[in-house]
């Protein structure tokens, strides 16, 4: 028997929309891959074999340079180590570096002053004003941006479903109170409020999510409220009530399940908004604290060095392609869930 639940049919439909489907596959795999970035893009070696001993700097963290016979203060320099081992042909020492051996935090590198280097085979997207590798920062920022937007959207959804659901379901004074509150909130310019609050609080990752949720719960809440309000009047709710179902069960088991379509189709666009917001705030200097890699901060630095085009183009294109992929996914999801067929003219 073929499984024909509505969701699997929608999924089948989504799979036929190539643009969205491939965007989802690519983006999802890149995002999963980005959790392994420390193994892929890092200036710490993965494994060092030195004088018969094995070291795992990537796991153990700091290893002094003196351990490997390097005459340097502080941490070992694995890239130098690798080239020195290579010269020395008859030793059995070797280093396994990550495929892209630069760290996003590695300031002016010991290979000499590396500020403002244009893209090369060594630094794929050049270096920035403090000699950090742009490509490395770009990749780490990808993970942070998507995680930020996902967590933000999920928290927004939880708040929105709880408050909006209760507003739509219970109505009355509770609804009226929150409606007024929402009216007040939404009359304020949101970005302005976020800037005020974050200029006071100097936010961390989660505080920023909190601040953003504080001003951003409204649109979701309103969407859910309208959905619950409409569903509440339908006979199945009355039936469930007359069977003695609890309010909680009616709200979250019955109504929520029936109002999933707008909730799900809205999700990708909410993520787009989240990423844009983070980039914008970082650009203004009210986002994540430096030196956290972020596209907005990279763009800000790039724009004050406008002749270094790679410093502007890299973060903008990274953001652009990420958002484009999510928009494609969103478009696909919308089409799969809401097959509005427009008749052609005649």
């Amino acid at each position: 028997m073929k499984n024909t639940s509505i969701f699997s049919r929608r999924w089948q439909k989504f799979k036929t929309l190539k643009r969205g489907y491939y965007s989802l596959i690519i983006l999802l795999s890149l995002y999963i891959l980005s959790f392994f970035l420390p193994l892929l893009i890092n200036n710490k070696a993965l494994i060092v074999k030195y004088e018969g001993n094995y070291y795992f700097p990537i796991v153990t963290g700091f290893v002094s340079g003196q351990v490997f016979g390097q005459d340097v203060p502080g941490e070992a320099r694995y890239r130098e180590l690798k080239s020195s081992f290579k010269e020395d042909l008859n030793s059995s020492n070797w280093v396994l570096l990550p495929p892209y051996p630069y760290s996003p935090f590695e300031d002016i590198t010991y290979d000499g002053n590396k500020m403002y280097e244009s893209p090369s085979s060594l630094h794929w997207l050049g270096t920035d004003n403090t000699g950090r590798d742009v490509f490395a920062r770009l990749c780490y920022a990808f993970n942070i941006s998507i995680s930020f937007a996902l967590i933000l959207t999920i928290i927004n959804y939880i708040v929105g479903i709880l408050i909006g659901g209760a507003m739509g379901y219970y109505g009355g004074k509770f609804d009226l109170f929150f409606q007024r509150l929402i009216e007040v909130w939404s009359s304020l310019p949101m970005l302005f409020v976020i800037i005020i609050i974050s200029s006071i609080l100097k936010p961390s990752f989660f505080l920023l999510i909190g601040i953003y949720t504080l001003v951003n719960w409204i649109s979701m809440t309103y969407l859910i409220r309208a959905e619950f309000y409409r569903e509440k009047a339908k006979p199945y709710v009355a039936a469930a009530l007359s069977m003695g179902q609890s309010n909680f069960k009616i709200m979250f088991k019955h109504i929520l399940a029936n109002s999933l379509v707008p909730i799900i189709t809205y999700f990708p666009f909410s993520v787009v908004a989240g990423i844009s917001a983070l980039v914008g705030l970082d650009y203004l200097g009210f986002g994540l604290a430096p030196p956290t890699p972020s596209w907005g901060q990279m763009l800000d630095v790039g724009l004050s060095n406008i002749s270094k085009w790679w410093m502007v183009f890299s973060p903008v294109s990274a953001q652009f392609f990420t958002l484009l992929a999510i928009v494609f996914i969103g478009e696909g999801v919308r089409e799969a869930f809401d097959p509005k067929v427009y008749s052609r003219l005649r």
């Binding site: 787009v272 844009s276 980039v279 914008g280 650009y283 763009l299 790039g302 724009l303 406008i306 085009w309 502007v312 183009f313 903008v316 953001q319 652009f320 392609f321 958002l323 484009l324 999510i326 928009v327 494609f328 478009e331």
Partner: peptide
């Protein structure tokens, strides 16, 4: 249109400036 939607206006402004 998809492209225009995926790039915030001000980020495009930066690219245009460069």
């Amino acid at each position: 249109i998809f492209m225009a939607y995926s790039i915030p206006g001000w980020a495009l402004g930066g690219v245009l400036l460069v």
